[in-house]
Amino acid sequence: MPGSLKFHQSALGKKVIMAASGIVLFGFVLVHMLGNLKLYQGAEKLNTYAEWLREMGAPLLPHNGAIWLMRVGLLVAVLVHVVSAYQVTRLSQRARPLNYKARQTLQATYASRTMRWGGVIILLFVIYHLAHLTWGSVHPAFIPGDVYSNVVAGFRVWWVSAFYVVAQMALGFHLYHGLWSMFQTLGVTAGDDRDWRRKFAVAFALLITLGNLSFPIAVLTGFVS
């Protein structure tokens, strides 16, 4: 029967799922960036903060309890986000098998045109980032629990920092289009001031990107050591 598709089976439903999981991930990257600003308050503050993340919720939750709850939530968000992105991308590729000989882009932004590959870069980066600063498996001098020294030693390697910079720019573009797109997907119309959704997206994408970019740059320039 027409109209009988389940929500998650429809492309529009998948987009809503992407927007919802996108909000979760956006909340994460925002808080993650703000938390990392403690780098500028010195080793003790940052390491205490990292320790607090593990103790959060005590005595209600066991050691590492809260952080694992969040990790599971984030993992689910990433999974549904990526799977839905893949599915709607396939739908679109089937719908538009041929391109024009004379191609023109009328107003689609660079950010909107790089959502898919930008997303892949972010995913690869996240895996590398976990191996680098969470597990320490690809870190030259990993000391469990000493977040400050891990960050500083990690970013002293210039090409590692360069990769972080590239990935954060990719995240910035993804967030810029993603946040704007999210309003469209969730049906938040702009009303009279057509631009407020763009302004919101620019502001938060810039805030997160500039914050994140500052960390490797601060280490490389010796501002943090």
């Binding site: 109209g3 429809s10 529009l12 998948k14 739908l91 679109s92 590729q93 882009t105 909107s112």
Partner: peptide
């Protein structure tokens, strides 16, 4: 119904705004 019919033949919007 209209969305379901639309999705059976057309692609998925990514808000390019073209």
């Amino acid at each position: 119904r209209m969305v379901e019919e639309m999705e059976s033949a057309f692609g998925s919007c990514t808000n390019f705004a073209e």
